[in-house]
């Protein structure tokens, strides 16, 4: 019930926000929402279930290419997004079942292979995927709405839905089983929890979320190409959820905001500085990577619970202050 109230409030906030923001901010909001689907799924997998995936970028690519092909066939956006979720769920089930026999670093290894293989597949089968140039995503935007506002509403709506479902999941039986498996596999199986099945299920759910995130990315960019889903995307997603805080879904939101805001902030910073052209061109593109890495180190040292952990600690302290 509480999660439903939160979701309704978030949806109302979304509609209001999109009406006030300018088109570029709406586009950024939509991008945050698309990332949020993927980071929320990853938070469930890693935070709730204790598994590590280095291949979520590739799962996003699968969702994105599905939308590109689906839109070419029928141009019905919601159907295409739903199909993308179905296809990545199946892909997630295949990888998850294969990975169920693997433990710890081996699962990370298997998903790493996925992150490298998927972009290569699009290049090898170029007659289908059109290699690095990628494919266009056909859209028919509504006439009554700004295209960026429409994108923000669709992506934001999808993200709210994902957050609502995952928040409920976290409080459900399955959520408790996932935590039990995360904390101690032996103890969990002694109490009758099917460890492997829980792990596969967590991976499948997480894949479906990543697939929706990727599908939304394709919808926003109106194109898909392997360059949009490199290995670094998978690593960035993981860094984002760690910095945001693995303990709760709110951490995934921090992570998604960071993924969009950090490159933008850095660009504004370097634009203000007067740099030599050679230095500027070296910084451009590499600086976000460096700053992301440094942020990760600082957050890990100063606030192992991530930004969300820091935030709730501050809130608690503020709460106690009047009493002391």
């Amino acid at each position: 019930m509480r999660t439903l109230l939160w979701s309704v409030a978030a949806a109302a906030g979304l509609v209001a926000a999109t009406a006030m923001l300018d088109p570029f901010r709406n586009y950024q909001l939509a991008t945050i929402a698309a990332y949020l689907c993927a980071t929320a799924g990853l938070t469930v997998l890693t935070g709730l279930n204790g598994q590590l995936s280095l291949g979520h970028g590739a799962l996003m690519a699968i969702g994105a290419y599905t939308v590109a092909f689906a839109q070419k066939s029928w141009d019905s956006l919601y159907l295409s997004l739903a199909l993308a979720v179905v296809v990545t769920t199946v892909a997630g089930a295949v990888v998850g079942l294969a990975a169920a026999r693997l433990r710890g670093p081996y699962l990370a290894g298997a998903t790493l292979a996925l992150a490298i293989a998927v972009p290569s597949i699009t290049i090898t089968f170029q007659s289908v995927f059109n290699s690095e140039q990628g494919l266009p995503v056909f859209l028919t935007p509504p006439r009554t709405l700004d295209i960026e506002r429409w994108q923000a509403l669709v992506a934001g709506g999808a993200a709210v839905l994902v957050m609502w479902l995952l928040a409920n999941l976290s409080r459900s039986h399955l959520g408790r089983r996932m935590r039990a498996v995360r904390d101690n596999e032996v103890a969990a199986s002694l109490t009758g929890v099917a460890v492997s099945r829980t792990q596969v299920l967590a991976f499948v759910i997480s894949s479906a979320c990543a697939g929706l995130g990727g599908a939304l990315m394709a919808f926003l960019a109106q194109s898909v190409s392997p360059g949009a889903f490199p290995l670094t995307l998978s690593l960035f997603l993981l860094m984002a959820v760690v910095i945001g805080g693995l303990g709760s879904l709110a951490g995934a939101l921090w992570g998604a905001v960071l993924l969009v805001a950090l490159p933008d902030v850095i660009h504004s910073l370097t634009e203000g500085m007067v740099l030599k052209p050679a230095m500027a061109s070296r910084l451009e593109g590499n600086l976000p990577l460096a700053i992301f890495g440094v942020t990760l180190i600082i957050v890990m040292l100063a606030a192992p619970g991530g930004l969300q952990g820091l935030f709730s600690r501050l809130l608690k302290r503020g709460h106690h202050a009047p009493n002391s």
Binding site: F24, Q133, M217, S281
Partner: peptide, 18 residues
């Protein structure tokens, strides 16, 4: 800078125009 990556081009061109 788009790094010759079509996904980045999408973002930077929107930034320029919008």
């Amino acid at each position: 800078d788009d790094g010759y990556n079509p996904a980045n081009t999408q973002t930077v061109v929107r930034q320029l125009v919008l």
